[in-house]
């Protein structure tokens, strides 16, 4: 399940459209600026405007609605809890009163305003992240981060993680299937079946880790055979897509 949504986002970045053609640095700077403004400005107007703009953009490049809703729903559920918390515990003018278990709790206007602000901010920032993630491949983002003086070693590890996550995922799933065929994950909800599943999953984790360790050794060998000198990514980044510019130039 997670892999599908993972691949879905990654595959969407491979499409050719207005926003995937845009320089990753521009997108990153715009997104960060928007997030800062979002936190700095009280009220819901900016947030809702941003949501509208992003939704229009996502619609324009035909991002599946299911993905958009799925992404926004999870943090929104938590957001509603925060909203209720603020509504009833914030000082201010009561706008209505509830009788719960013999006591009165009042919802306040101030609480309502703050609560809706937070809900709007959550929706706006999740949409923004989603927009960034469906239009910017991880490697372009990595180079944009290096350009913006983000610590290079973190980007290097991030790009290696991104690359090898797909390899390890395939290996892990093969092990999992082999375990399933040998009753590693029995059906049912009893404590014994659960114990067996947990044992299988820890074995799977250990095996994936061992594979990763061995692969690190052979990858290092392969890097050495191409005169590796400690730099995993080459120099500065300029968009591949801009004519005549290459990522190592």
């Amino acid at each position: 399940m997670i892999k599908e949504s993972y691949f879905a986002v990654d595959a969407l970045t491979q499409r050719d459209n207005l926003f995937t053609r845009m320089d990753a640095r521009v997108k990153v700077i715009l997104s960060i600026t928007a997030l800062i403004v979002l936190l700095a400005i009280p009220g819901v107007k900016f947030a809702l405007g941003l949501v509208g703009l992003i939704m229009a953009a996502l619609f324009l490049i035909r991002i599946p609605l299911k993905l958009v809703i799925g992404r926004i729903a999870v943090p929104l559920i938590f957001g509603i809890f925060v909203f209720l918390l603020l509504l009833f515990f914030q000082n201010g003018h009561p706008i209505f009163t509830l009788h719960v278990l013999g006591s009165n709790i009042a919802g306040t206007r101030e609480g309502f305003i703050l609560g809706t602000t937070i809900l709007a901010r959550i929706t706006a920032s999740v949409s923004l992240l989603l927009f960034l993630s469906v239009t910017t491949p991880v490697h372009e983002l990595g180079h944009a981060l290096i350009y913006l003086r983000f610590p290079k070693v973190i980007v290097e590890i991030m790009l290696l993680t991104y690359r090898y996550l797909f390899v390890l995922w395939d290996e892990g799933m093969r092990i999992r299937q082999a375990q399933t065929l040998r009753m590693g994950y029995p059906d049912g909800r009893g404590i014994r079946t659960w114990k067996r599943s947990v044992k299988s999953i820890s074995t799977l984790m250990a095996m994936v880790f061992i594979r990763a360790y061995d692969r690190a050794e052979s990858t290092f060998d392969a890097m050495q055979a191409r005169a590796y000198n400690g730099n995993v990514t080459g120099g500065h980044y300029k968009s591949w897509k801009t004519k005549g510019m290459q990522p190592w130039s």
Binding site: A222, A227, G234, S249
Partner: peptide, 29 residues
């Protein structure tokens, strides 16, 4: 090939060797 291809894209991976040999950008490209 998964041991060898560690960079995120084909172009960047192929550029790894020439970059380490310190060629100028145009030559690498």
């Amino acid at each position: 090939p998964n041991d060898q291809l560690f960079a995120p894209t084909v172009g960047e991976d192929v550029a790894f060797g020439p970059t380490n040999l310190k060629f100028p950008p145009a030559e690498i490209a």
